[in-house]
Design a protein around this nucleic acid. Structure first.
Lengths: 189, 189
DNA sequence: GTCTATACCAAGATAGAC
DNA sequence: GTCTATCTTGGTATAGAC
């Protein structure tokens, strides 16, 4: 399958941002990887702010689709949340990479208001989906001790993100697993 | 009290790193704030890598001292952990700032091996202290449902860090509080 | 210990040809 | 849609005077 240049640029930029942060990659990096010149990138993304917005929008769409797919493939609340945890685990790529929203978070001052709005929109979507899964798990009995699904969701998303940071610093994905162990143990398989 | 230039530089750099990330501040920023020239900074810190190491070492020392002070001022495991959570909450500065280790984590590729080693050393120290507090809270009955103090600590530090990211993106410290609510509810006051 | 001056490079971005 | 060429700014870092 042939991928168009714009998609190649988004792929390259997402990988760069997730491994080096928003302030840690440049048009020159993308140009080298996609094999066009810096000037040509500006044809697709007029400036870095535009690129950042496009990255977050695509990321939001991708994750929403991933959650919808998890819904279809798993029967219980616990199974769905386990699948989400697996996805965040996989996104580590062995400790080299972070989820896009985490990698953008420390560079907030370099980002446009629109990008920050997209980040918040993404987080709201995720929190809502996770809340619903805790409600489901409470009802179907697949998650133990669920008192407040909203409080659970407000904790789980930050825990996933923080666990990624822990694994990244230690260059060891077991840190991620260790951070998630407590909540995973409440899932009935 | 008069502060020497080197300390002023460290203070300025720490604030800059915590609000804009390691790749998001420059010697020019510090020079403007401390009111010396860029060239003079190199007298105190030969290069940015040296500065990063000094920042992490001081941060480690500061947090270790803060934990020791918490130990002295609070009787129970729950009270000590509540005090630590308060410190991380306060470090947000209303949603503008992160803890230094979090702000460095996304820029790992720009950091020297020595700086990364200092970050891991800091995290080990914190995990150990938190583990001990969960053990204490289990024994003195101040924390409910503690089965595995090590697993609790492996989760709490990432949760604190992830909760800071959540508050930073939303520009709302209530996200931090919401993320910590579940664990805080297990503390007997 | 701080300064001026400067070297060197990389960044984001633009103009205009093809 | 991609190129060459160029602009402007700002980054880290150094030399050498005071």
């Amino acid at each position: 399958m042939v991928t168009d240049t714009k998609t190649n640029l988004l792929n390259s930029a997402e990988h760069a941002a997730r491994t080096r942060g928003f302030d840690g990659f440049s048009y020159a990096d993308l140009a080298a990887e996609v094999k066009i010149t810096k000037a040509s990138i500006h044809h697709h993304f007029a400036n870095k702010a535009t690129l950042a917005v496009a990255l977050m929008q695509r990321y939001h769409t991708d994750l929403k689709a991933a959650c919808a797919e998890i819904d279809l493939e798993h029967a219980t609340g616990a199974a769905c949340l386990s699948a989400l945890i697996s996805r965040y685990h996989g996104a580590l790529e062995g400790g080299q990479s972070l989820c896009l929203c985490v990698s953008f978070s420390t560079s907030i001052e370099s980002l446009s208001a629109q990008t920050i709005a997209e980040m918040n929109s993404f987080r709201s979507m995720m929190i809502e989906w996770i809340s619903q899964k805790f409600r489901q798990g409470k009802e179907d009995g697949s998650i133990q001790h669920v008192l407040d699904p909203e409080a659970e969701a407000a904790a789980l998303l930050p825990l996933l993100e923080g666990a990624q940071l822990a694994a990244r610093v230690a260059q060891d994905t077991q840190r991620f697993e260790a951070a998630l162990r407590l909540v995973s143990q409440r899932f009935q398989t």
